[in-house]
Amino acid sequence: PRSLRNAFYLHPDQFPPAIYLPGTRGPRFLVSDVLIWLEARKPQQPASATAATPKPQQGRPRKASAAQIARARQHGQGGAA
């Protein structure tokens, strides 16, 4: 919520019209205005249905267990000592 609030105060023109009610903090939005605003921002083309590609490994790999090390040594892949 705080990120949205900050974005609203920085760029109010990118949000639906806000109303300010006495006795409340911050802007309020009419549901109908929000629905219209969301509909206007829908992607024009549906998302492509491509198969998800696995993410590349990032960061340091996890430590191998003793069983993984033994399996790697049996298959001639070296392994951590």
Score class of each variant (00 low, 15 high):
G59S: 12
G23R: 12
R41W: 01
D13T: 03
Y20R: 09
F15Q: 00
S48H: 05
P43M: 07
Y9Q: 04
K63H: 11
R71F: 09
Q58D: 08
G79P: 11
H75S: 10
H75R: 15
A7C: 06
A64G: 10
K42N: 07
T24V: 08
D33C: 11
R2A: 07
P61H: 10
G78I: 14
F15S: 01
P61E: 10
R71V: 10
T53F: 00
K63Q: 13
G26L: 08
G76N: 14
S48V: 08
G23Y: 09
D13V: 02
G79F: 08
P56R: 05
S32A: 14
A51I: 00
A7D: 05
L38W: 05
T24F: 12
Q14M: 02
T53H: 01
Q44N: 06
R62V: 09
L10P: 01
P22E: 12
Q74R: 15
S48A: 15
S32N: 14
G26A: 11
S48P: 10
R62K: 15
K55E: 03
F8E: 02
Q74A: 14
K63V: 10
F8C: 02
G78V: 13
E39I: 01
A49D: 13
G79A: 13
I69M: 11
Q44C: 03
K63T: 12
T50A: 03
Q45A: 11
T24R: 15
Y9W: 10
K42P: 01
W37V: 01
F29Q: 00
R28Q: 14
L38Y: 04
H11E: 00
F29C: 00
S3W: 03
A18V: 04
L35V: 10
A40R: 15
L30V: 08
